[in-house]
Amino acid sequence: MYSWDFSALQPYWGLIWNGLGTTVIYTLVTVAAGAAIGLVVGILRLNAARWLDILLRAYIEVFRCTPLLVQLVWVYYALPVLIGVDMSAATACFITLSLYAGSFYAEIFRGGILAVDKGQWEAGRAIGMRRGKIFRRIILPQAVQVMIPSLINQTVLQLKNTSLVSVVAVSDLLYQGSVITAASYRPLEVYTVIAVLYFAVLFPLTLVADRIEARMGAHK
């Protein structure tokens, strides 16, 4: 029987919190950037010229149909060679995670907007509202309701996906785990703590998501 000894982690708590902070910050920043990219791309695709639609579709499919790990490694190791610009691991991770999130958010936004009955556009036009206003005040609020579950889902995934940045030595929670393991020889304790921390952040998020979903559906 393995004898657990969490006290062995005592000297490393600083590193662990540090890693958790990095993970959370990467998530927040790339979710925000990804949502912005997704909103723009999703809306553009709704009535884009053919060439633009093909371009945006290509972007989305490339990021959806290759593993994030491959994207990260490619952007970090291959892209700088191609464009001749050195990129820090942090920058490479930021770019990749944002574009990755953006590709998924774009589809979620587009789907949500298309799911709104086109009679809603007509009702807005019939009372003399302009396109932009109809979109913001009539269509988007209804689209968001449809999208909330998928948005939350994707955001939860995004936080889990940040663990991949440890591969290019960005010091997130998982990376600190491997550092501490190397120093303490306590992989079971270390990775158990790390799993619990991921869970402790994400579980409340899913609870909040359920709450929001229930509240927003109140008038249905």
Binding site: G119, E122, A123, K220
Partner: peptide, 23 residues
């Protein structure tokens, strides 16, 4: 666009399926 919007402000329309804003 501006002419369309101006015209529609003077012409009311009621649809078969109401098209009320559900939110």
């Amino acid at each position: 666009d501006r002419e369309l919007v101006a015209l529609r402000r003077d012409v009311g329309m009621v649809f078969q399926h109401f098209n009320l804003f559900p939110h």
